[in-house]
Design a protein around this nucleic acid. Structure first.
Lengths: 246, 246
DNA sequence: ATCCTGCTTTGACCCAGATCAATCAGTAGA
DNA sequence: TCTACTGATTGATCTGGGTCAAAGCAGGAT
């Protein structure tokens, strides 16, 4: 397996997620306190970060790479319940056990904080608690959007929705407002199926269908080119236009 | 329609949700400040509290009754994304528009806070922000559980899951640990369908099936008796036993 | 009483997506 | 170069839940 061993940042000031993670609002002195309780951990693609039910004595931010939260039923049915991209936060202050499996789906670097000290800082440093609240509210919104996808969308709409979610969060998209773009798909077909409540065969078929219909083009299995983002959003069944007035 | 006009509480000290809502951790002096920016609103069953997209100049706690958050696609497909029972919180500090329809499904009393002053209090009163963070994390957990239901469970499991969720949150359940219990179903078949990503016909059929199999008994359409809660949990496909050791 | 009107139940049929199975395409190792 | 794997694609068939349609069943209102 290809090992891209990305070195963790030397210190917070040149951290790539400095301005979007839990620490985003911290002042330099607060950052210094955080720095004392933090440490980096790296995982290879496929490794499990924590198993559901295990004790989890840290909370963490994703620095680089992609991780997933999944729930599994006794008979093996699996549902992804969280997709963690850089700057996303894992773990819950004030809880000991992990409620979900956390898995690295690509090579992954996490910035971990020892739980106890972090919890104490939450009480003394409002900037951390404020930012965490904001991020949690954003995640709740995302989860609710996802519930609409799971409960009411067709397989084709589900795939289109997932692609547009990933496209929207891709750094190259944030920097441009073109109609067309190209991005990496960080998930296997199986992981996409777990995300969308489908089987991997259906995922594959629907991706082929979108390709056939010219909505997307594949460059290798894992790189997606979208010639017209509006067409993709249309397929996703979302209230497409953000309503630009005349 | 039957009008049960429940009078709102006179002041916070005899409010039924005093110890479980956003204000749960407030000290008497903090409560006094909150009291200055609060007002009650009542809705009849079926009324809309706010429409998705509308301006929402308040945040609120449910005092009594049940409300839902729903998303609707252009073609009319609907998905419930939140079920609000007494003490639950609606609205997001720092956002003007409502992202979902909020609807009273039974007669409803809400304790509303004017948004601006509430936002200011969030910054000055850590007890409010802390409690809101805790509640939001709980909701996120619930949303993720719900995602497993929507994505991977069968219709029968979905119904059993919903019934056990409602049973668990029913006040009479919290006060007893018997195997059997009886509770009111606050939702129509259609609302249950919107919750579970099903059609109302399927909901009706599966309820009949659970009844036929002796998992539940109906006393009128809206009152459910569960002779053995463990059987219901089994049907829900949840990791049933909380693991009582030998 | 009887007629609404808004739920709910039940039946008959159909289809989107699951299941089962074979094949293909890269990449890694020997 | 050949082999072994892991992931992806495609085909054939089956089925759970959707769709369409017709009753049933309260509570109010007339």
């Amino acid at each position: 397996m290809l090992k891209t061993n990305i070195a963790p940042p030397q210190d917070c000031s040149d951290c790539p997620i400095r301005h979007s993670a839990v620490c985003a609002r911290c002042e330099p002195d607060e950052l210094k306190l955080l720095e004392e309780v933090k440490y980096y951990r790296s995982f290879e693609a496929g490794q499990t970060v924590v198993w559901s039910g295990d004790k989890m004595d840290f909370v963490a931010s994703v620095v680089s790479g992609v991780a997933t939260l999944t729930q599994t039923m006794e008979d093996g049915r699996r549902q992804m319940v969280g997709l963690l991209l850089p700057s996303d936060f894992v773990g819950r202050p004030g809880r000991h056990g992990a409620p979900y499996d956390v898995t690295a789906v690509s090579d992954l670097v996490m910035c971990c904080f020892r739980k106890r000290p972090f919890e104490r800082m939450m009480e003394t440093t409002p900037h951390i608690a404020q930012r965490l609240l904001e991020m949690t509210l954003d995640e709740l919104d995302a989860a609710r959007e996802w519930m609409l996808v799971l409960g009411r969308k067709t397989a084709r709409e589900k795939i289109a929705s997932l692609l547009s979610i990933i496209a929207r969060r891709d750094p190259v998209f944030s920097n441009s407002d073109q109609r067309s773009l190209t991005f990496n798909l960080p998930l296997t077909r199986e992981a996409m199926a777990d995300y969308l409540g489908l089987t991997l065969e259906t995922v594959s078929r629907q991706i082929s269908a979108l390709k056939r219909d010219g909505i997307i083009r594949l460059e290798g299995k894992r790189r997606v080119h979208v010639p017209d983002l509006d067409l993709l959003l249309e397929e996703a069944g979302d209230d497409s236009d953000g309503g630009l007035p005349s």
